[in-house]
């Protein structure tokens, strides 16, 4: 099937919301640091995972497990156990980033379907084909750094299915390699499964405005009428040469509804929605809009147009309440 809609599930109600509103696949993580959304209280234990998989299956929706962090030597067994558990649960595919884990999974379970995570940071077809030859990777999620023309070039030169990010929070353009959070807190997505660990984050109302701090470092100060963003270093406002501004990136969300016909034409296999950390109502609303949009484009790509209603619904849910086509649409390469 072309252009599957892949939706996030941080918990059982979110999974059900995705399935009920038209997701073709849902992806989830276990309750430990084996995935890049290791937040307290989020994710699935074996009981909720079982229930979720059953619920999705009965309704024709596939289930993917994100095991997309990099194991530390001392805790290798936790990641290996997660692969074994996933097979036991019977997920449709694993989303992996680490080479060692890929080797283990592909040797131990030759029939297990593997996807290359965005954290694997493979941006060219040579890299993707390497993963395919050595570990039988069947799909790769591309980092949000390529223009559409570059994406198309990748698709043409690989047998591996290509999945693109369609909507959600944006990382600055070094996916799978960013250690900004480690710099301030000792923990970052690839090592501890979390950017800006909540225990290091403080929000405080001050006479000057709402302040966010990461381990004491002032990230931003919002005036009364300013929208807030996630407390990540990449989206902080910093003083650079006497000017205070978003020196790395503005709080904004990726929204590529307008590109769906291009993605269909290019033979993209799947669109991923970001946001396992968001609530079930977010998953419900985003899934509904994307389902409608993909169906409309599949019916008649030539007459496809993004409706103001879709944009309004997604705009409301966006960080910073503004959105961008990201790197997909840009004149330079």
């Amino acid at each position: 099937m072309s252009l599957e809609l892949v939706c996030p599930a941080g918990n059982l109600p979110a999974l059900k919301a995705a399935v009920d509103n038209g997701a073709d696949c849902v992806y989830f993580g276990f309750r430990n640091s084996t995935n890049a959304r290791a937040f307290a209280g989020l994710n699935f234990d074996s009981e909720t995972a079982k229930q979720g998989i059953r619920y999705a299956r009965e309704r024709g929706c596939k289930v993917l497990l994100a095991l997309n962090t990099f194991p530390q030597t001392a805790q290798w067994h936790i990641w290996r156990q997660a692969v074994d558990d996933a097979v036991e649960l019977g997920v449709d595919a694993l989303i992996l980033a680490d080479l060692g884990l890929m080797r283990y999974a592909s040797r131990t379970y030759p029939n297990l379907r593997l996807h290359l995570s965005v954290q694997g940071s493979a941006t060219n077809y040579e890299a993707i084909n390497f993963y395919h030859e050595h570990f039988g990777i069947q799909r790769a999620v591309l980092p949000r750094v390529l223009s559409l023309a570059q994406v198309e070039n990748v698709v043409k030169h690989t047998p591996v299915e290509i999945e693109l990010f369609g909507f959600g929070g944006l990382c600055v353009m070094v996916e799978g390699r960013c250690i900004l959070s480690s710099y301030a807190t000792g923990e970052s997505p690839n090592t501890a499964g979390v950017c800006s660990p909540a225990k290091a984050v403080r929000w405080q109302q001050t006479p000057k405005g709402l302040e966010s701090r990461l381990n004491g470092v002032l990230l931003d100060r919002y005036g009364a009428d300013e929208n807030a963003g996630y407390p990540t270093l990449c989206k902080g406002r910093f003083e650079v040469e006497d000017e205070t501004y978003y020196a790395l990136e503005e709080p904004t969300s990726l929204n590529t509804l307008a590109l769906i016909p291009d993605m269909l034409r290019m033979g993209i296999s799947a669109i991923k929605i970001e946001g396992r950390q968001r609530s079930p109502i977010y998953v419900e609303q985003v899934t509904r809009v994307w389902r409608a949009a993909i169906d409309a484009a599949k019916r008649d790509a030539a007459y496809y147009a993004v409706t103001p209603d879709w944009m309004a619904q997604l705009g409301k849910l966006s960080e910073g309440q503004q959105h961008t086509l990201g790197a997909y649409y840009r004149p330079w390469k």
Partner: peptide
């Protein structure tokens, strides 16, 4: 969605952020 309310400043969470997340 709580994050949405938070982004547009209708929901304010202060103190121990991890507790809020839990």
């Amino acid at each position: 969605d709580p994050d949405t309310l938070f982004f547009n400043r209708r929901l304010v969470v202060e103190g121990d952020t991890e507790l809020g997340l839990v």
